[in-house]
C-alpha cells in the first residue's frame, strides 16, 4: 500500500480532475439535456426534429469517437478551445480539458434527454393541461410543472447516466487530461511491483465515488417522492 500512500498527492490531484470533469460535464449535460428534452416535446416542429436527429446521431456514436472529434477534428476547423485556461493552485483546466469536457457534455446530454423524456412521458397529461389552463406559456409549463415532476420519474435513469459519466471520464485519460485513469497508468508503469495494490486502490476509490452518487440519488428519490 506504500506506493499508493507515497503518491497520495498525485492520486488526489488526478481524482480532482476526474471529479471536476464529472461535475462540469454533469451539470452542463443536465441543462443541455433538459433543453433537448423540452425541444423534443415542444410545440416547434423544427426543434422537435432537430433534437430527435441529435439524439439519434450522438447516442449511437461511441463516446471515444465523439471526444476524438472535438480533440482532433475540432482543431482542423478552428475549434481549439484555446480561450479556456483556468488555473487554480495545481489544477490546470486547459484547451484539452475543455475539448474533453465538451465531448462528454455532447455525448451525455443525449442520454439525459432520453431519460428526461421518459420522465416527461410519465407525467399525466392533465398536469400540462392544468398548467396551460392557468395561462403559463410553454416555458413555464415545462419549468414549473412538467420538468420538476419528470425529474422525479427520471431520477433512477438519470442517476445511471451520471454514474456512467463518472466512469466515462476515464476516456479523457488518453486524450490529454491527467485524470485518475492516466495517473493509474503512470503509477502502474512506474511501480510494476505494486501493480495490484494500485489497481485495487483506484478501483476502490471509483467504487466509493459511485456509491456516494448512488446514495445521493437515493436520498433525492426519497425526498422528492410525491407524498
Amino acid at each position: 500500500m506504500n506506493v499508493v500512500l507515497d503518491n497520495a498527492g498525485d492520486i488526489a490531484l488526478a481524482f480532482i480532475y476526474t471529479l471536476s470533469l464529472f461535475v462540469v460535464a454533469g451539470v452542463l449535460s443536465l441543462i443541455f439535456g433538459a433543453l433537448l428534452a423540452a425541444a423534443r416535446v415542444g410545440p416547434v416542429a423544427v426543434l422537435r426534429k432537430a433534437a430527435a436527429v441529435y439524439v439519434t446521431l450522438i447516442r449511437n456514436t461511441p463516446l471515444l469517437i465523439v471526444i476524438i472529434f472535438f480533440r482532433f477534428a475540432g482543431p482542423k476547423i478552428g475549434l481549439t478551445f484555446s480561450f479556456v485556461d483556468i488555473r487554480v493552485a495545481d489544477i490546470r483546466l486547459n484547451n484539452l480539458y475543455a475539448a474533453c469536457a465538451v465531448g462528454l457534455v455532447v455525448y451525455t446530454s443525449s442520454f439525459v434527454c432520453e431519460a428526461l423524456r421518459s420522465g416527461i412521458n410519465a407525467v399525466p397529461l392533465g398536469q400540462a393541461e392544468a398548467a396551460r389552463a392557468i395561462g403559463l406559456p410553454f416555458g413555464g409549463v415545462m419549468s414549473q410543472v412538467i420538468m420538476p415532476q419528470a425529474m422525479r420519474h427520471a431520477l433512477p435513469p438519470l442517476a445511471s447516466v451520471q454514474i456512467a459519466l463518472l466512469k466515462n471520464t476515464t476516456v479523457c485519460g488518453a486524450l490529454g487530461v491527467f485524470e485518475a485513469f492516466a495517473r493509474m497508468r503512470g503509477l502502474t508503469n512506474d511501480f510494476a511491483s505494486a501493480r495490484t495494490e494500485i489497481f485495487l486502490a483506484f478501483a476502490l476509490i471509483f467504487v466509493v465515488l459511485v456509491e456516494v452518487l448512488s446514495f445521493v440519488a437515493y436520498r433525492l428519490e426519497r425526498r422528492w417522492r410525491i407524498v
Binding site: P124, Q144, V145, R152
Partner: peptide
Amino acid sequence: QSFNLFAH
C-alpha cells in the same frame, strides 16, 4: 374532472 392539481 380529475382535478389535475400540481402533484409536486
